[in-house]
């Protein structure tokens, strides 16, 4: 249990006749970036609320940092930071005051609050605007400030609901670096929900895919890709004669061959070396310019899982 920041066991939450979270069982190891993926309305926000003890499950149980959200929600919230669906910033306060307020909530000393404000606002490029009322800021700037607020008291576990939404690519990239650093160097666990599957693929050590409150899959992006899709090789060149294609189809590890516009796409049963295939094609008169080993992206896996569930 202690190796995991979050453990849920058949956690279920209903809202009248709607089952928002359906027997969710996940394990989130400590010190990783964990991606929680799902379409809109799939139960991601409800799950975060359940884990923070803001809602109670109807069935099942959970443990967050060793605490039970039902009976020890205060301890959980004391050790966590959160950026929820909305930024939750006070628009009538300055950026500095917003951070200072949350520092006071977490009993951060005045000197540490000042130092942390400087560090976070500088790293996110907001220092020059620290005296502005947040209400006058752009959406992206508010999002950055909300992330800074979630990190301010150096929590052990951070819940981030769509943290890069509204951020420009430069800011998003800077945030990615911060999150990677938090997990890798400081051992912070980051529970991240996102629609940006490329982001999840790049950042997350593990992901879980949820649809209509139900867990569809959990594992590392590589594991999920391997589990959900067959490896594929694409040949670019000339001279892909019917004889060459027939020879490929007869090869034991090949499941399918398709040709289009100078490209030959070969589906394999399992990942294997491509050199024998190249030799075979060349022996049948083909001229090969490029070989691409292709694998389904996390997005393909996600779409396939959701489609299967439908």
């Amino acid at each position: 249990m202690n190796d995991h920041a979050i453990v849920t066991d058949a956690m279920t939450r209903d809202f009248k006749s709607v089952r928002a979270v359906n027997e969710l069982t996940i394990e989130v190891p400590r010190g990783i970036l964990f991606g929680f993926l799902g379409p809109n309305g799939s139960g991601k926000t409800t799950t975060i609320r359940l884990l923070l003890g803001l809602l109670e499950p109807n069935q099942g149980r959970a443990e967050v940092l060793g605490f039970n959200p039902k009976t020890q929600a205060d301890q959980i919230r004391a050790h966590c930071g959160a950026l929820l669906e909305h930024t939750g910033l006070y628009e009538r306060l300055t950026a500095e005051d917003n951070l200072d307020f949350y520092g006071r909530i977490w009993h951060v000393s005045a000197a540490e609050r000042q130092a942390r404000t400087l560090e976070l606002l500088k790293s996110l490029g907001l220092w020059d605007r620290r005296k502005d009322l947040v209400g006058s800021w752009s959406r992206g700037m508010k999002q950055k400030l909300a992330v800074a607020r979630a990190l301010f008291h150096r929590p052990e576990l951070i819940f981030l609901d769509e943290p890069t939404s509204g951020l420009d690519p430069v800011a998003a990239s800077a945030l990615h670096e911060t999150l990677i650093d938090l997990a890798a160097r400081q051992g912070v666990t980051v529970f991240l929900t996102t629609h940006n599957l490329a982001e999840a693929e790049k950042l997350c050590g593990q992901v879980a895919v949820i649809h209509q409150g139900k867990l569809l899959a959990q594992g590392s992006p590589t594991e999920l890709r391997a589990k959900m899709s067959s490896p594929r090789v694409e040949f670019v060149g000339r001279g892909f004669t019917p004889a060459a294609i027939e020879a490929l189809r007869g090869y034991p590890k090949v499941t399918d061959v398709a040709q289009s516009d100078g490209h030959l796409i070969v589906d394999l049963k399992e990942p294997s070396e491509t050199a024998p295939l190249v030799t075979l094609l060349v022996s049948k008169g083909a001229e090969i310019e490029e070989v691409r080993k292709d694998q389904a992206s996390l997005e393909d896996v996600f779409l396939k899982l959701v489609e299967e569930e439908k």
């Binding site: 923070l52 803001l54 205060d74 919230r77 004391a78 966590c80 959160a82 929820l84 669906e85 909305h86 930024t87 939750g88 910033l89 006070y90 628009e91 949350y102 909530i105 977490w106």
Partner: peptide
């Protein structure tokens, strides 16, 4: 109304 309540409730404040 200003969507700050949930974040406040998600804090450690009693």
């Amino acid at each position: 109304e200003r969507h700050t309540l949930e974040t406040l409730l998600a804090s450690r404040l009693p």
